[in-house]
Design a protein around this nucleic acid. Sequence first.
DNA 1: CATTTCCGTAAGTCATTGCTTACGGTAAGC
DNA 2: GCTTACCGTAAGCAATGACTTACGGAAATG
Lengths: 105, 105
Amino acid sequence: MTYGNVLHALADPTRRHIFEALNKGPCSVGDLAARQPVSRPAVSQHLKVLMAANLVSVQTQGTRRLYYLRREGLEGLRQWLDGFWDDALASFGAEVARQVSADDG
Amino acid sequence: MTYGNVLHALADPTRRHIFEALNKGPCSVGDLAARQPVSRPAVSQHLKVLMAANLVSVQTQGTRRLYYLRREGLEGLRQWLDGFWDDALASFGAEVARQVSADDG
DNA sequence: CATTTCCGTAAGTCATTGCTTACGGTAAGC
DNA sequence: GCTTACCGTAAGCAATGACTTACGGAAATG
């Protein structure tokens, strides 16, 4: 479920651009929007989705709101991905795959 | 770009279910649809998307079409994820983050 | 206190998309 | 050859979503 939100959040290209931009360091919403081909409210809405996925966080600084990246938010997705290379699952999958390829030869 | 397709493909819950089901071994479209709350054509369309993302592949076997998982399709996404923990980027990000937290204390 | 800056949210629009039913096409069985 | 099983695609529909403009609120500036 947690990696579901992450996948959904990172599936959008604009959201990925914002996320990658924040990887270079914290940034305000206005500066973030200036480097995107979309309006500032659009960026704000995207940040809301990234927040819900625990991929970014905020820190108010005067009138500005500095968003920064949260790499921990990627952990769930990473672990889910690693699961596909799990030894037990891989060996089982390989065995079934061998049965399939057996029809070929 | 390649991980973009993967993220898009895996963002849909039904597609994830299909993908995870194929992780247990190859399966036909009908059997796949029997375990999903959607119709068979829907599964077929989802498989088309997974194919475009190089996440699955097919092998015709009589009238049946056995779909199987392709773990290589996840490599691009995995590498993209690993990039966020890259030493250089991380140190740079940490430095900027330190500047932000400097305002706090 | 009035103004400016920076931002989040509401409302509305248009494209995307996930789903369905209907159809056509290929391979096995009699 | 006809039927049956299995599947991909087309067409249509309802829902989601990404974007815009308009508005209102909070903090620095004078």
